[in-house]
């Protein structure tokens, strides 16, 4: 029941992120900011932190597995690792933001700034909520409330964390990777529908 709820919630949030991504792609085409993205963004650093986030899904999976086998301590350790990796990612993102902002590049600088900070910002917000959830999970787990997890609390929270991770993989590919492949998407594509 709780897993169904989380899947539905995640599906709804997915539509939210798709809306933000549609806006990103639209502005990429209309404002031609592919080359600016290439110039401003650091794919290597972000790539490393992306790797950490992907790893955190793995550690969370390990944590769930441990709990299923009744190994509370192991579960806690893996969960802690997940939290650390997630926090590291957030720190990495914050550093990226700091670097850009102190260079005078803000959400209001141009269309790229608007789209970039909005899409990554909302992801970061969802990630932060995910970290709080993981922290709460650690607390519950350490006190023994999840030894008998008939309500599937861990699996439910897991779905959310894996979702946040998956969203980042898509966002990272879109924002960081694609400009290396095709800095200028075909301008005519969405022109008529989104208007300029």
């Amino acid at each position: 029941m709780n897993r169904l709820m989380m899947k539905l919630f995640v599906a709804s949030e997915a539509i939210f992120f798709v809306s933000l991504m549609v806006a990103y792609v639209y502005f990429w085409i209309s404002a031609r900011f592919g080359t600016e993205a290439l110039a401003r963004l650091d794919i290597v650093t972000s790539g490393v932190f992306t790797g950490m986030l992907v790893l955190s899904s793995g550690t969370l999976w390990m944590s769930e597995r441990s709990r299923n086998r009744g190994k509370r301590t192991a579960a806690l350790v893996w969960l802690g690792a997940t939290l650390l990796l997630g926090a590291a990612f957030l720190a990495g993102q914050s550093h990226e933001y700091y670097r850009l902002l102190s260079g005078g590049f803000t959400i209001g600088s141009d269309e790229f700034g608007t789209s970039f900070f909005t899409l990554t910002g909302f992801h970061g917000l969802h990630l932060l909520l995910g970290l709080l959830t993981l922290g709460t999970l650690m607390l519950l787990l350490s006190k023994g409330y999840l030894d008998n997890d008939r309500a599937n609390v861990m699996a439910t929270a897991g779905i959310y964390w894996h979702f946040v991770d998956a969203v980042w993989v898509v966002v990272f590919t879109l924002i960081y990777v694609f400009p290396h492949i095709a800095p200028h998407l075909a301008p005519h594509v969405v022109q008529n529908i989104t208007g300029s």
Binding site: A23, Y26, F27, S30, A31, T106, I107, G108, D110, E111, G113, T114, F117, T118, I193, T194, G195, S196
Partner: peptide
């Protein structure tokens, strides 16, 4: 997006840079 435009000067729907149709 509109709140970001109004409060943080983002450019989603502004004249020239943004898109009202969006």
């Amino acid at each position: 997006m509109l709140l970001l435009d109004r409060l943080l000067h983002a450019m989603f729907f502004v004249n020239t840079h943004g898109s009202p149709l969006l």
